[in-house]
Write a protein that binds this DNA or RNA. Structure first.
Length: 226
DNA sequence: GCGACAG
DNA sequence: ATCTTGTCGC
């Protein structure tokens, strides 16, 4: 993969320098695009991370699905020694190395990737989904189960109901009810996807469960339950 | 200074 | 995220 050569710069080995990592995020955030410049993909993917050996091993899963049927076609796993602790706001530095390796293991690259976590709904505009998008150049969408930053108005009860997620006076994502009577999903671009497009695609990617099929499969495989 | 804080 | 059984509610 051509983007493999850029990983060292965009996801440097952890050296404990939080300020430096944050500065890099701010720089990369400037490369995020919310413009949808791609054709509707035939293949999508879901990626997620789990841990083994009490956290010593980071295990990433990437699942390729048919965009229309949402049926899984293939998957790849990657296991790497965990190199840094979980630090709110710096999740991507901890998980992306393994995610990139899993993604590279798929038989073909997807036209869109669903990532477990925030996209631009992040303190510096570069959650793990946006970071992955900038590194790979692939369209990505962040699908989180809880809010990292931002506030929102009360949400309706029906499937598809949504309200903007606001942060520092501007919309950075969507709080989306993917299914009646369940906690809403926190959806945000990503890369090469608009706020509206991200929410629309996530809703289309959810069938009978709260989470998108792509995310469910990736989660299952990363947590070694699949 | 005091909380909040994706996975 | 992970440690972990049964249990309350739709």
């Amino acid at each position: 993969m051509d983007w493999m050569t850029t990983i060292a710069d965009a996801v440097p080995a952890w050296d404990g320098d939080v300020a430096k990592a944050r500065a890099l995020q701010s720089t990369l955030a400037g490369q995020v695009s919310l413009v949808e410049d791609f054709a509707e993909p035939a293949r999508i993917a879901g990626v997620d991370v789990g841990f083994e050996e009490q956290g010593a091993i980071t295990r990433a899963a990437a699942v390729l699905l048919d965009a229309r049927s949402l049926q899984p076609l293939a998957h790849a796993l990657a296991r790497l020694p965990t190199r840094m602790p979980y630090i709110p706001g710096l999740l991507s530095f901890r998980e992306l190395p393994a995610v990139l390796q899993a993604l590279a293991g798929l038989p073909e690259q997807p036209g869109l990737v669903f990532v477990d976590g925030q996209g631009i709904a992040h303190p510096r505009g570069l959650g793990i989904a946006a970071h992955l998008g900038v590194i790979t150049g692939l369209p990505t969408i962040g699908v989180a189960k809880t809010i990292l930053v931002g506030t929102h108005a009360p949400l309706g009860e029906q499937r598809g109901d949504s309200v903007p997620l606001l942060f520092k006076g501007r919309a950075v994502g969507t709080v989306l009810r993917s299914k009646p009577k369940v906690r809403p999903l926190i959806v945000s671009p990503g890369h090469r996807v608009s706020i509206e497009g991200a929410a629309r695609r996530v809703l289309a990617g959810c069938t009978r469960y709260r989470l998108p099929e792509a995310t469910r499969w990736a989660d299952k495989l990363a947590s070694r339950r699949g």
